[in-house]
Design a protein around this nucleic acid. Structure first.
Length: 853
RNA sequence: GCGGACGUGGCGAAAAGGUAGACGCAGCAGACUUAAAAUCUGCUCCGGGCAACCGGGUGCGGGUUCGAGUCCCGCCGUCCGCACCA
């Protein structure tokens, strides 16, 4: 009994594809294209099976579309800038570039072993000046188009690392690496004006039909549109106005205070003369931004002593407070408080004994007895206690109040968004230098295009905390391009999301001297199928959508949406194991002893934990190399496709992969030692076949139709099940029957073709065994013959009162009346009718008969 | 708090409103073998029955329908995203 020699076969076919450059493509205007892209990896060290699941799905799509005749672009590259390289450099006393390139080498070799159909001639690494020089140019164009700007902004500052931290890097108020308490600091930073496209980005989500609903919702929430009004309150005794944003202008008569953010300009001004307020503001700024801190934080405020004049009633004054729960970044940094109809305002009012004035009456409630207790009233009702708004519904009152504000010049309707401009400055070395120069006399001067790229210096020292570019002895000192006086370079680098916001464009013409060749982009873009993790649902995908629009505005291309189709795949999980002392164990360190208990190598008991996403820290990872060494790439690929729907998490199990390995060998035996002598390829199949053989042919053609449909809809697990059904059917073929050998050949060829995108090496090997010349990768996708998928005989379910009582084998498309007669004639049916005539009979052709007694 | 997704055998799962559990994993029994591995065959939702068969069954409670895992209403649970967002 022979075993499939995947080692030999996989190397052989990989060589075959490489030598013939089968997957290198060029734009062919007029020929239908298909651009398949998997989110490119950060070269962190080694590929894990989670990566491979992602790339396998992409490879199935790429090979399938190719077989369908599309000109398929399927590239791969490296998102190569980022903090881990710097951390590794510090830890290993190496250089980020060295570490990164080593990882790329390792990971590329791993990808090659998997047999993915990439056009390697388009490989890119974003840390290469040939890549990042183009984004420096883009930045200068954005600057000229007012899509990039510099401003002071509050940032999370790690005082030990001497750098800005992203919100995600602040854990419980501390730096994720240093553990130092994070401070808020006002820092001058570069921003990209994503808010110039807010409404466009929001509106266009509706057109992203081939995106998961979930991702579209997440982006909508992230942009966070809310319609309301800005309202101007005058500070009593002055002409000065305070602007407030609200969505509830209908409740203005319920206002009992104004609250300013601690960083509101007015608050800061008052604090100059009010030491108590200054101390309060300082305390607010020290407070962490983490979820836990906010959850536990009490509403706290400080009365400024100032009062504001009510816009609808000048005789009414409300106190102005500074409150810790008002965000400077949202709306105008100031709110009016209506405790009766807002949870936070109510908490605040109760604490500081401010009035609670209900102005919306629930339907049917008695205005004389209605009072607010523990909870505010948030639903619709009738407005009261509100002068000209009395009697209106909430919606009508919103409109009426807004109109009155506009007429009085004390406010106007407006829309606020949660989305903020994208801060791109990082005080880091291993990133793309921001191409500007700071000059004492000329201010900010863009680096002239002829001086691009601004490259990173190689001789850097990571021993000193902070930004190595900043403390490099010479790098930042340059003459001002405008006046020639000594000036200094910007030492911040771009956020690494900058690189991933346009790499899909670079792939269209990866060696172009410009960022990309316009004709190549016009041909290949948009990406037809993008595949990646849900963790990028917002940031990367939103930034890329923005970038595409910004580049369009700067004349680079004519495209709004970069990704026509998006698929977010689930994670790969594995059971976790812990020793009795709580240390995490690798799966290969765990064995089963004679009594069936889990033990480690030394026989100590092991505790099996939850099934979780594979992570290095919990050691529940399986090494890709070990899997491929033991079972081969095809087995790993099929397992990743077969066990769970692709959008759901996949549980990696040893027994699961072994099951696939058994199947691989079964396929191999079926072609290398077929149960009947196969006729040579290309012979027509006899048209008259015994029923058992005809059935197998039907299964064959049904499998083609079903697998085609499943691949179109990303249902890989079902496609695998259909292919296995066909395999089972071929095993049951009566080999001695007339035409059986022909049907067997047809079935085996179908298996090879359908498996081609999933297990390309084995499929090629099968194809060759079946006597074909050349590569299966160049064969067309099989067509199912509709005539051959139709059953002649159907089994119909027969129900009495909705319960299954019998089945009926009957020729397909038998007339309903005849079906009814046949069903009523069944003894099982007669028994349940007990001699009564049926009241009603429903016949669904070829499916079911339901007899209502 | 707001928004969303999902609840089906021992496990991963499948079912255009039409025979629930395809396909696989694990398990049990058997064949081959001196033996094991590999391979092959059969069984495997629950309860009752020697059996044909009968009853029950898709988180819980209702509803629509000839017919509901699927549609509608109300609960319960799990997971995810956002969150002092005014």
């Amino acid at each position: 009994m022979s075993r499939y020699n995947f080692r030999e076969s996989e190397a052989k076919w990989q060589r075959h594809w490489r030598e013939r450059r089968l997957f290198e493509v060029t734009a062919e205007p007029g020929r239908p294209k298909y651009y398949v892209l998997e989110m490119f990896p950060y070269p962190s060290g080694k590929l894990h099976v989670g990566h491979v699941r992602n790339y396998t799905m992409g490879d199935v799509v790429a090979r399938y579309r190719r077989a369908q005749g599309f000109n398929v672009l399927h590239p791969m590259g490296w998102d190569a800038f980022g903090l881990p390289a710097e951390n590794a450099a510090m830890a290993e006393n190496s250089h980020p570039a060295v570490w990164t390139h080593e990882n790329i080498r390792t990971m590329r070799a791993q990808l090659e072993r998997m047999g993915f159909a990439y056009d390697w001639s388009r490989e890119i690494a974003t840390c290469h000046p040939d890549y990042y020089r183009h984004e420096q140019k883009m930045f200068l164009d954005f600057l000229a188009a007012d899509l990039a700007y510099r401003r002071e902004s509050w940032v999370n500052w790690d005082p030990v690392e001497n750098t800005v931290l992203a919100n995600e890097q602040v854990i419980d108020g501390r730096g994720w690496r240093s553990g130092a308490i994070v401070e808020k600091r006002l820092l001058s930073q570069w921003f990209l004006r994503i808010t110039a496209f807010t409404e466009e980005l929001l509106e266009a989500i509706g057109g992203l039909e081939r995106w998961p609903e979930r991702v579209r919702l997440m982006q909508e929430n992230w942009i966070g549109r809310s319609d309301g009004a800005r309202v101007f309150f005058t500070i009593a005794g002055t002409d000065e106005r305070i602007e407030v944003f609200t969505t509830r202008q209908d409740t203005l008569f319920g206002a009992s205070f104004l609250a300013l953010s601690p960083n509101h300009p007015l608050a800061l001004r008052v604090a100059e003369k009010d030491a108590g307020l200054a101390a309060f503001i300082a305390e607010c700024n020290r407070m962490g931004t983490s979820e836990a801190v906010i959850e536990a934080a009490e509403k706290r405020g400080y009365a400024t002593g100032l009062e504001a004049v009510h816009p609808f009633d000048e005789s009414r004054h409300v106190p102005i407070w500074v409150a810790n729960f008002v965000l400077m970044e949202y709306g105008s940094g100031a709110i009016f408080g209506c405790p009766a109809h807002d949870q936070r305002d109510l908490e605040f009012a109760r604490k500081y004994r401010l009035p609670v004035i209900p102005v919306v009456l629930p339907l049917g409630a008695d205005p004389a007895n209605f009072a607010i207790g523990e909870t505010p009233y948030l639903d619709d009702g009738t407005v009261f206690n509100s002068a000209f708004l009395d009697g209106l519904s909430v919606a009508d009152a919103k409109r009426a109040a807004a109109e009155r504000l506009e007429a009085l010049g004390r406010g106007e309707r407006t829309t606020a968004y949660r989305l903020r401009d994208w801060g791109v400055s990082r005080q880091r070395y291993w990133g793309c230098p921001i191409p500007v120069i700071h000059c004492e006399s000329c201010g900010i001067v863009p680096v002239p295009e002829k001086d691009l790229p601004v490259t990173l210096p190689e001789d850097v020292d990571f021993a000193v905390p902070g930004n190595p570019l900043d403390h490099h002895p010479t790098w930042k000192h340059v003459p001002c391009p405008r006046c020639g006086q000594p000036a200094r370079r910007e030492t911040d680098t771009f956020d690494t999301f900058f690189e991933s916001s346009w790499y899909f464009l670079r792939f269209c013409s990866a060696r172009a001297p410009t960022a990309f060749d316009r004709q190549a982009v016009d041909y290949w873009m948009p990406v037809d199928q993008y595949i990646g993790g849900i963790e990028h649902a917002v940031l990367h995908l939103l930034y890329s959508r923005f970038f595409t629009r910004a580049l369009k505005r700067c004349g680079y291309l004519d495209l709004d949406e970069p990704f026509a189709g998006l698929f977010t795949q689930g994670m790969v999980c594995h059971q976790t194991y812990q020793s009795e002392t709580g240390e995490w164990l690798f799966p290969e360190e765990v064995e089963t002893d004679g009594a069936g208990r889990l033990v480690d190598a030394a026989g100590r008991e092991v505790i099996a934990g939850r099934h979780e996403k594979m992570s290095k820290s919990k050691r529940n990872v399986v090494g890709l190399d070990a899997i491929v060494d033991t079972y081969g790439a095809d087995t790993a690929r099929l397992y990743l496709l077969s066990d769970s729907p692709p959008e759901r998490d996949l549980e990696w199990t040893e027994t699961g992969i072994e099951g696939i390995w058994r199947y691989v060998n079964r396929l191999w035996r079926l072609v290398s030692e077929p149960p009947a002598t196969l006729p040579p390829p290309g012979l027509p199949i006899p048209s008259r076949l015994p029923a058992e053989v005809a059935t197998v042919r039907r299964t064959n053609h049904k499998a083609i139709a079903a697998v085609t449909d499943d691949l179109d809809k990303f249902r890989f697990n079902r496609a695998v099940a259909r292919i296995r059904e066909l395999t089972n059917a071929l095993d049951e073929l009566p080999v001695g029957a007339p035409g059986a050998a022909h049907a067997l050949r047809e079935g085996l060829e179908t298996l090879a073709r359908l498996l081609g995108p999933m297990m390309p090496h084995l499929a090629e090997e099968m194809w060759e065994q079946l006597g074909h010349e050349g590569s299966l990768a160049e064969e067309a996708w099989p067509q199912s013959d509709p005539e051959l998928t139709r059953d002649e005989q159907v089994t119909m379910a027969v129900q009495v009162n909705g319960k299954l009582r019998a089945t009926l084998d009957i020729p397909r498309d038998t007339a309903s009346a005849a079906v009814e007669d046949a069903a009523l004639a069944l003894p099982q049916v007669a028994r349940w009718l007990e001699g009564h005539a049926p009241r009603k009979v429903i016949v669904v052709p070829n499916r079911i008969v339901n007899i209502v007694a």
